[in-house]
Each structure stands twice: as C-alpha cells, then as structure tokens.
C-alpha cells in the first residue's frame, strides 16, 4: 500500500495531467456531435467484439447447463407428441382425456446424468445420478437424444442402475420404419460396442442396408419411435429362414452424458399384465 502511495506521490504531475486531459476529452465527446458519433461508433464496435468474444468463451463453460436445459426442453416437447398420448380421439388427440389418470400424458421424462458407464464388458451397466426419490423405478426405459440407452434394473434413493443395450441380456424388438413392420430381436453379442445383432427377421422380408430401426409400439418399456440404429449388413442363407443382420447403433455409448429416464404412467397396469406373459430369459426384455 505504501508503495502505491509513494508511486502516486512521485507521479502526481503526470496523473494530474491525465486527469485534466480526460476531463477535456470527455467534454469533447459529450458536446461535439461529430466526435461523439465517431468515438461511440468505434467504442460500440469494440464493445460488440468484446461481447462476442466473451460470449464465445463463456458459452464453453455453460455447455453443461445448456445441455441440461435442452434435455428438459426435449422432455417437454416429447410430452406434446402424439405417440406420447394414451390414445388419439377421432377429433384429435388433444380433446381426449384419460378417465383414470385425468391426463393426456402417457410418459413423463426425468433427466439424469450418467456417472458411471462401461462398454467393454460382456454385460455393461450404467449408473445414473437419480434414484427413486426422483421418481425412478425398476423397468423404466432410458433414452438419450441419439437413441435408446437401456432399462433401469435397480434404483436406490439417489442413484439408479441401468442395464445398457450393450448387455447380453438386453433384448428389444425393432420397428422397421421403411417396411412399417415390427419384427425380430435385437441383442448385443459382446463384441463391438457400436453394433448389435438383429435376429429372427424373416428372410422373405425385403431388407436394405441403411434401413432405420426404431422402438416399436409393441414395446412395454420404451415409447415408440425412439431410434435404435440402422442396418449395416444383412445376410441370409437357404439353411435358415431368418436373416443375420448387423445393426449400427444410433447411440454412441462411449459419449453418454445426459440421458432421460422415461416413466410410463400406466406402468403398473402393464406390469400386472406382463407378469402373465412367460419370458424366455430372466433379462429385461420387452
């Protein structure tokens, strides 16, 4: 502090000059229209450039928040989609109200963050930072903006365990958008985390590479229309009635960060009915 005072005392004359000059220059820019317009024109330009630069820098720090906001917004938008509704009335979905839930909404979306993930195991699991205190329960599906992620198999108070699509026990029936059919079973063979196998598709179905697969409306866990992947390669032989199909997953599991847990409001009813259907394995399949 003493050094600063000493410096000010030593530089008092130049400082006084700068002060008086600034006072004069302020008057010039304040009272002379021409100088005022030029100065503030440049100042505004610099100010805007600085703003742009600052926004560019700070936007990187806000990416996480922005991502979370987008997930919330996606949830809200999904709530407005037709396939999210319990049924379509003849006069339009929005006029229909379910007599039991008193709501049009069939699904609710709970954003969550992936805090643990693996893609290298035979049976991969994902841990989310949301649990039953946030409304997450067993058998809820998990999706992300790119596509399906998995199914909740356990939920603690604040965390949930999700069976990833990259799990040998995970199975799902896809919907062929181009063919308008739901057929076959998708499962992971434990090899490449970018690809899954699709079996039990009749070899008389006309498949093409690049066909898009979505979750079907037969799914008890996933909402219909969520991307699964695209057909990478399909083979058939005369010994079998079914194709051997390789599907490229739309979800990049190595980049998972923010996901959405889908809560089916009618899940209890479905669980009761589902219990009556014998499953061929103990896994979470639909």
């Amino acid at each position: 502090m003493l050094v600063i005072f000493r410096w000010i005392r030593n530089q008092a004359y130049p400082l006084l000059y700068v002060l008086l000059l600034l006072s004069a220059v302020t008057q010039i820019f304040r009272y002379h229209f021409y100088q005022h317009s030029i100065y503030f024109g440049h100042a505004l330009g610099i100010h805007r450039s600085m703003d742009q630069w600052r926004a560019d820098v700070t936007s990187y720090f806000k990416l996480r928040t922005t991502n979370e906001q987008l997930v919330k917004e996606n949830g809200l938008l999904r709530n407005q989609l037709n396939w999210n509704l319990t049924s379509n009335s003849p006069k339009g979905a929005l006029t229909y109200t379910d007599t039991f839930t008193k709501s049009l909404i069939k699904y609710e979306y709970i954003p969550a963050r992936v805090i643990r993930n693996s893609v290298n195991e035979q049976n991969n699991f994902i841990v989310l930072d949301r649990g039953y205190k946030d409304g997450i329960k067993k058998h809820m599906s998990v999706i992300c903006p790119m596509g399906i992620v998995g199914v909740v198999v356990e939920s603690a108070a604040h965390y949930s365990l999700v069976m990833s699509v990259l799990n040998s026990k995970f199975e799902i029936t896809p919907y062929f958008y181009d063919l308008k059919i739901s057929q076959g079973v998708i499962s992971w063979n434990g090899e490449d985390p970018n690809f899954v196998e699709l079996e039990e598709v009749n070899r008389f179905v006309k498949l093409k590479n690049g066909m898009k697969l979505y979750t079907s409306n037969y799914s008890l866990l996933f909402p219909a229309g969520i991307p699964i992947g695209t057909i990478e390669k399909s083979e058939s032989n005369l010994k079998s009635n079914f194709y051997q199909i390789k599907v490229k997953l739309s979800t990049d599991f190595s980049q998972l960060d923010v996901v959405t847990v889908v809560k089916n409001i009618h899940q209890n009813e479905l669980d009761v009915l589902n219990a009556l259907i014998p499953t061929k394995s103990g896994g979470a399949n639909d």
């Binding site: 004359y13 004069a24 010039i28």
Partner: peptide, 23 residues
C-alpha cells in the same frame, strides 16, 4: 497545469468548442 485547464475551459466556454482548447 490547473490554470491552463481553466484557461482553456474559458476559451471553450466563450467559443463554444467545449474541451478542445482545454485539451
């Protein structure tokens, strides 16, 4: 220095060129 400031200010005030003679 302070005298020069007020001197310039006086000319500016008389001539309507605020700030220029002062600076």
């Amino acid at each position: 220095l302070i005298g020069a400031f007020f001197f310039g200010l006086t000319i500016d005030a008389f001539g309507g060129s605020l700030g220029m003679h002062t600076a």
